[in-house]
Design a protein around this nucleic acid. Sequence first.
DNA 1: TCCAGAGGTTAATCCATTCG
DNA 2: CGAATGGATTAACCTCTGGA
Length: 275
Amino acid sequence: MNCRHLDLTSQSEQLDLFRALPGDMAPRDAQDLMAHPFFSLAKSRRTVPIDFRSGEVTVRVEGTLEHGIATIWDADILIWAASQLVEARDAGIPTSRLMRATPYQILRFIGRGTSLRDYQRLKAALDRLQSTSVATSIRETTGRRLHRFSWINEWKELAAADGRPLGIELILPDWFYSGVLDQALVLTIDPAYFRLTGGIERWLYRLVRKHGGKQEDGWQFDFRHLYRKSGSSARYSDFALDLRALVARQPLPGYRLEIVHLPPSTELLAFRPVP
DNA sequence: TCCAGAGGTTAATCCATTCG
DNA sequence: CGAATGGATTAACCTCTGGA
């Protein structure tokens, strides 16, 4: 199942090509992806599906046995794509779901190294994004139907006749693409986000950024609720342990975390923006 | 300067296990 | 059941080299 060798011409013919813009730009993330458990928080392969339901919102994520569910580090590629698209739109440059870039550009933007292993990981990440299947009710206003898609429809490596690499091409799903181009559904995030190494840490930053962005007084959530919302496969006790460690380290750029004890045994995580 | 690759170090997660 | 511990595994991070 190697999508690298698929022929993209069937779709490419109808899609204009968007070439990645050079230079630095603010990282932007899709809000829907920040507030719900769309990604695995574990570094090792996760094949157990994420099944989240809260009120009208349903999120189900499945991975293949071969690749596992796309991780929150893989999501960096989607952040890169969203940043490119928003930047282009704001500059009046036409965008497209079909994007071309060099792996190097992507790796630099998301703050990774550029070693062989980093390139391999990037390809593995693209494979995971492509093979992860998502079904969600978010932005599906008509009735209870679910929208099904993969994070990347297709991707391939481009090479010259002599084997010299010419970059990669990928096609984004419509659900993600239209969400990104809808201004109200995108938030800028701190570039320091890419330096967050822990899965839970990254997930928490996204949640905090989404919910606490403009709240002067901050926000607070019950540990149990957070655990459910995270989709984490860790045990609750480990999850709680991680949260306490995070509060001790204060790793989130732009926010301060605090634990509020609520007798008899409830713990709340509170956060507020720091000026 | 951009891009691709090498190798070693550091750190997070997961699992099994034990203890209260 | 939740909390803590230690070890194995995996992946991110860092610094360096070299070609175009």
